[in-house]
Computed example of a mutant assay.
Amino acid sequence: MKDKSIDFNNKKWYSKLALPKPLDSIIIFVLNILLTIPIFIILHQNIIDPNWPFQIDRILLFTSILITLQLILRLLKTFLVLCIIGYFAFLIWGTLFGGYSLSSVYEDYRAIVYSMAEDPNPQDVIIAKLLPFPNKNKIINAIEFNNPKVRNFALLATTKHFTNIKGHNEYRQIIQCFAIFKEVRNRWNYVNDPKGREYIATASESLMHFSGDCDDHAILMSALIRAIGGTPRIIHTKEHLYPEMLIGTKADLDNIIYLIKEVLFKDESLGKEIHYHIDERGQVWLNLDYTALYPGGPFMSKEILGALTLN
């Protein structure tokens, strides 16, 4: 009698956790998607890119995670309630102690919704997170914003341009970043990489001769901007890398455009358009490519395949 009573109680305990059909299948599917996307993004950003054609490695990774989680959740369908609690416990732990947090997953899912919009204006969607950034680790290491040579040159550039500008104190750092852009733009000399090789120059190396290709320029500009507290990022297109810098939100955009066209780069931008991107969080990123005569000059390519942000 005692053993039967225990079995009965256990059965009753299991039945309380189980969900009725077909609700259990629906919740399994939704929970699988909620788990697969953040796990895929975390793994994708931390594993070595094998450079397989057509991103087959990423497709296989996503499919493997999806199938594995589906099987696990099917096996644990009696404990779906505990799985849901565990999912949110993981996110709360990340929020409190660092890591993948509630805000991270919210931003990733908001980016997905944003990318599904009919006309994101302009483009800056979840694909930048899903596709591998070429030579990511080498580029991050090359952006030596803590190097004294980089910091000192950034300071020097801020003393050579726009020092007589009065007012606009709220945009002082942005004006100083524009001074860096002007100094590097005046000196930059485009030189190809060695034949058959992708050469990644460090920021301090590029300061020696102010020469290199597009990725060398993007690395140098990102390092210099970061060295004075700005927030740069590097955009990857099909055959080009170029730097952008965060200038604020849409509320700041008109003021920045006025500074460029009427105060700082009046001649260079006369009759020209200011080019920028707005990300899924409403942040405005201004083009700083070496091909432009002024901040916000024309894009060489509008197609975004990846974005590497330096916070």
Rank of each mutant, 00 (worst) to 15 (best):
H217Y: 15
A201V: 06
A89Y: 04
N121G: 07
Y290I: 13
K2P: 00
I37V: 14
N51I: 08
I67H: 09
N121S: 13
Y258G: 03
H44P: 00
I256Q: 02
R58K: 15
L207S: 07
Y106H: 08
Y242L: 15
F40R: 03
P232C: 12
K2N: 03
D213K: 02
G297Q: 03
V30M: 05
K266F: 02
P122G: 11
L80S: 12
K266C: 04
M300R: 15
K238L: 15
P20C: 04
L35A: 09
E273F: 02
E303Q: 15
L60K: 10
C83P: 06
P50C: 05
L246Q: 10
K238D: 15
F29W: 04
I235G: 11
Y14E: 06
I174V: 13
L43D: 02
I56R: 12
P50I: 06
I33A: 12
P120K: 13
R172W: 01
K182A: 10
L131D: 11
G306P: 12
Y114R: 04
L80P: 14
A179I: 12
D279P: 07
K21T: 09
T231C: 06
G98L: 05
L19E: 02
P243I: 12
A251T: 05
A179R: 12
I27P: 05
T237H: 12
P148L: 01
P50K: 07
F97C: 03
Y242C: 12
L35M: 15
I39P: 08
H240G: 07
I304S: 14
P53W: 02
Q70P: 05
F90D: 04
Y100P: 04
I126R: 08
N147L: 04
D216P: 08
I28A: 02
N9M: 01
N147F: 04
C177N: 14
G99P: 06
L264P: 00
Y100N: 07
R185V: 05
I28P: 02
L286Y: 02
L60G: 10
Q176A: 11
Y114T: 03
V125Y: 14
L308H: 12
L35I: 10
T36W: 01
E205T: 12
Y199L: 09
E244S: 11
L308Q: 13
L241D: 14
M1F: 03
I247V: 14
G230K: 11
T163Q: 06
I42Y: 07
L69G: 08
L17G: 02
V263P: 04
Y109K: 06
E205L: 10
V284L: 00
K160L: 15
N192D: 01
I274R: 01
I112G: 08
T231K: 14
G306E: 09
T309L: 13
